[in-house]
């Protein structure tokens, strides 16, 4: 999958020719992930309803919407974590790295090695801080300098200064905010292309959350970040693009963040953002 970047131009042109203005990525960025006519069902219940969108590369894209509207489901279709849910069925395409990730010849395990994920509740492994960060390297058989990579990732997650003297103590001994940054370090250590974050700050206090927000800003220089959040201010602060989902798994509006928050096209979106609904 190392030819990803060379393929990107291909997707971009293809996408631009067939998509309308609203869902086109902002100028200067290629497309990292593109969903096409995506429908997701849990048994008979539909969780994502015919969603098409292109997510720009090296930008922060926020997914917002009321509870149960399918944001987490959408996120999980990108790295095929929905495969783990037996009753879940996916229709349509998700393009990443020039390929539909639901093609038969795509190995979901190999795919996930290109896409990092951070969960709502920090979930460090009950291992040392070092082993937590090196986990992805270990399972991928990385044969370079692991310690250097651990240090680099912890610095990337703005955690290095706090833990550099206790790399061998357990990751569970950190505070919640530190644990979440540890999970971010773990996700970026194998150098993925995309990082998915599902409400990464909702279990944290405002100070820890704002640290992570700053961090997300920095991450976007190197990675494509897709983040689900319930916090409007957070979405407005950190994201370049915002997608609003509403109940039933419908993508109602997707545009530059400034536009969504200042002058949304849809009345329903305005109602949601201003708190009249949802």
């Amino acid at each position: 999958m190392s030819n990803t970047t060379s393929d990107d131009s291909l997707i971009t042109t293809e996408v631009q020719t067939e998509s309308n203005d609203e869902s086109a990525p902002p100028a200067g960025a290629g497309t990292a992930v593109a969903a096409r006519d995506l429908n997701v069902y849990y048994g008979d219940e539909q969780a994502i309803d015919d969603v098409s969108m292109e997510i720009p590369e090296k930008r922060v894209t926020a997914l917002i919407g009321p509870s149960g509207c399918g944001k987490s489901t959408f996120l999980r279709t990108i790295n095929r974590m929905n495969d783990m849910i037996e009753i879940c069925r996916v229709d349509g395409e998700v393009e990443f790295g020039g390929k539909n990730v639901y093609d038969d010849d795509v190995d979901p395990v190999a795919l996930r090695r290109k896409i990092g994920m951070v969960f709502q509740k920090p979930n460090p492994f009950p291992k040392s801080i070092r082993d937590n960060v090196a986990y992805g390297l270990k399972i991928q058989g990385f044969d370079g300098d692991v310690d250097a990579r651990v240090e680099e990732s912890l610095k990337g997650a703005a955690l290095w200064d706090e833990v550099k003297d206790q790399l061998d103590s357990s990751g569970l001994e950190l505070s919640g905010g530190q644990q979440q940054r540890l999970c971010i370090a773990r996700a970026i250590a194998p150098d993925p292309e995309v990082i998915l974050m599902d409400e990464p700050t909702s279990a944290l206090d405002p100070v820890a959350a704002s640290k992570i927000e700053d961090l997300i800003d920095d991450l976007a220089e190197e990675y494509t970040v897709i983040i689900v959040t319930h916090n409007m201010q957070q979405a407005a602060r950190i994201s370049d693009r915002t997608a609003v989902f509403l109940t039933g798994g419908e993508l109602v509006e997707y545009d530059d963040t400034a536009k969504i928050f200042e002058d949304p096209e849809e009345q329903r979106v305005e109602d949601y953002i201003t708190g009249k609904f949802g």
Binding site: M84, R112, R113, M117, F119, K121, N123, F125, I139, P190
Partner: peptide
């Protein structure tokens, strides 16, 4: 906890790993 399994799966670990 399932959280740990999902964390590991999301890193691209095989079931055996």
């Amino acid at each position: 906890p399932d959280d740990l399994r999902r964390g590991s799966d999301a890193m691209g670990a095989t079931r055996w790993q």
